[in-house]
């Protein structure tokens, strides 16, 4: 049983989220401003918070600052503020994720699931041999298996090789040519387009939103990297 707190001043949005997240495993708590949310977090055992920013009485930013003083519960901002500065501010003060309204229900569901799993089951730091891990992505070279947030992902051999290369060198940028040379073991002759296609596929598999990747980042004009 997971306790999820949804905090938004708009009751319709809370209801819609409850319907989308509908799962026998979830129990929901509702708050209509930051103060109510804080009260609930103090009294109940909450596993995840969906937090709006623009609310009466106490806004989301202030609420999160207060939450972070005593709890490391995953907090996902769910807000109409879509500017980059707002997103950076939100993440900097301790949010685990940032989803802008109008959100896609599938995305919210996926992210909630991912954060719950990571928070409750995948403790940080326990490194097994032959397992590469970046964030929620795990690559088991022995079993030739890729897990994202604890879920098995099926991949083609080429996709697997590319992901392995990138995960072995986290934060390092590889050009498409370099990837081609290393994975295909051949010289690219104007065929490096294929690398981009494969990377796109990998992103679609391991990322919740392929256009806004968390792990496999596209550095435009330079290459690709796995970000730790």
């Amino acid at each position: 049983m997971y306790n999820i707190l949804i905090c938004d001043d708009e009751k319709d949005i809370i209801n819609a989220l409850r319907i989308y997240l509908n799962d026998s495993q979830y129990q929901f708590f509702e708050a209509y401003n930051g103060k109510q949310a804080l009260d609930i977090i103090v009294t109940e055992e909450i596993h995840l918070v969906l937090l709006d920013i623009m609310m009466p009485v106490m806004d989301g930013i202030e609420t999160l600052e207060k939450i972070r003083q005593f709890s490391n519960v995953p907090v996902i901002f769910l807000t109409a503020k879509s500017e980059e500065v707002d997103m950076i501010l939100g993440l900097n003060i301790g949010a685990d994720d940032y989803i802008t309204k109008p959100f896609s229900p599938m995305e919210v569901t996926a992210r909630v699931k991912s954060h719950l799993r990571r928070f409750l089951y995948l403790g940080a730091g326990e490194l097994k041999a032959d397992i590469l891990r970046i964030g929620g992505v795990e690559l088991n070279d022995k079993a030739k298996q890729v897990m994202v947030d604890g879920e098995n992902i099926s991949m083609t051999p080429t996709e697997y090789e590319i992901l392995k290369l990138l995960m072995e060198h986290p934060n390092e940028v590889f050009t498409p040519k370099e990837i081609y040379r290393r994975v295909w073991k051949d010289n690219p002759l104007g065929t490096e387009n294929i690398v981009a296609v494969h990377v796109r596929h990998i992103r679609e598999k391991i990322e919740i939103d392929a256009a806004n990747p968390r792990y496999l980042k596209v550095i435009w004009g330079q290459g690709y990297k796995m970000e730790k």
Binding site: E84, T175, P176, N193, V197, V199, V218, W220, G221
Partner: peptide, 23 residues
């Protein structure tokens, strides 16, 4: 809008963009 100019290899960029849209 903030513009953070950085050296960008136009050929790599085009490859990447084409790859994103090929499918």
């Amino acid at each position: 809008v903030e513009v953070l100019s950085a050296p960008c290899e136009a050929d790599i960029f085009l490859t990447q963009a084409a790859g994103e849209y090929e499918e």
